[in-house]
């Protein structure tokens, strides 16, 4: 298993209240998992805990056999830079940088800006942004911005892609485009994708869905096969890795 959560919980606020409690689950390599639930159900919190962006109040998260809680800040930074890509509801692009510069920001941190430049242009072309590499974010549409954010998340060819409501600020057409990209990345590159969405239609694009209700795992929707926290889910055939987008 690539990601294992062992009875994780998150308490927030004053007085503290449980946002998430006792969640145990496993995510396989190359799986496309969607996390659904109502607003406030804790699905984004779960995503952030699994992705190392947030720390658990109880329990433990293990990625590739490494306990996230035992990793030093430097190791976490390295892990996020090399293994993880994030896509948020809002694109969070740096407004002062051009499209290509935004895409290359993770590579700049890794000192691989030049070696990944050609790949960055490939990503822009694949996501329909060819010829817009020098544009600033304010010169792009909402759909283009989100696709640009996905390109940025993929520049380091991460093993894991965490997407938090990536279609939340898009219209249906652009939303479908973004989910299609995530699906393609998962199938073609073998990137493990965890997507939080409240849209059941987009959630259905995933190999497996888990549903959160009041901070706890609820019934799985379309899952078949392997167990996740005692619930059944759909087994996913491994996809071929390799090949560039």
């Amino acid at each position: 298993m690539a990601i294992i959560a062992r009875s994780i919980g998150k308490r927030l606020g004053e007085p503290p209240s449980d946002i998430l409690s006792g969640v145990s689950m496993e995510v396989r390599d190359r799986e496309f998992l969607s996390i659904t639930g109502r607003s406030g159900s804790g699905k984004s919190t779960l995503l952030y805990l699994l992705s190392s962006l947030d720390t658990v109040s109880s329990g433990a998260v293990e990625i590739d056999g490494q306990d996230l809680g035992a990793m030093s800040p430097e190791e976490l930074c390295f892990f996020r830079n090399r293994q993880v890509g994030f896509v948020f509801q809002f694109h969070y692009l740096l407004s002062e940088l051009s499209a290509i510069e935004n895409v290359l920001m993770p590579a700049r941190k890794a000192g691989e800006e030049e070696t990944r430049r050609a790949y960055a242009f490939n990503l822009l072309e694949e996501f329909g942004l060819a010829g817009k590499s020098d544009r600033l974010p304010r010169e792009l549409s909402g759909g283009e911005l989100q696709r640009l954010a996905i390109a940025r998340s993929l520049i380091m060819r991460p093993k894991y892609l965490f997407a938090d409501e990536p279609t939340g600020s898009l219209d249906t057409a652009n939303g479908e485009l973004v989910v299609g990209i995530l699906r393609r990345i998962n199938q073609r590159d073998g990137t493990t994708v965890l997507m939080v969405t409240h849209d059941s239609g987009f959630a259905a694009a995933a190999d497996r869905q888990i549903r959160l209700a009041d901070g706890r795992l609820g019934e799985a929707d379309t899952s078949v096969g392997a167990s996740a926290n005692g619930r059944t889910d759909r087994s996913v055939a491994p996809h071929d890795r390799g090949g560039s987008l």
Binding site: Y92, L94, K109
Partner: peptide
């Protein structure tokens, strides 16, 4: 603040 958050999610450290 959002830039800081996204930079941290990309692996940029507190020191950066």
């Amino acid at each position: 603040r959002r830039d800081i958050a996204i930079l941290r999610s990309m692996g940029y450290s507190t020191r950066d």
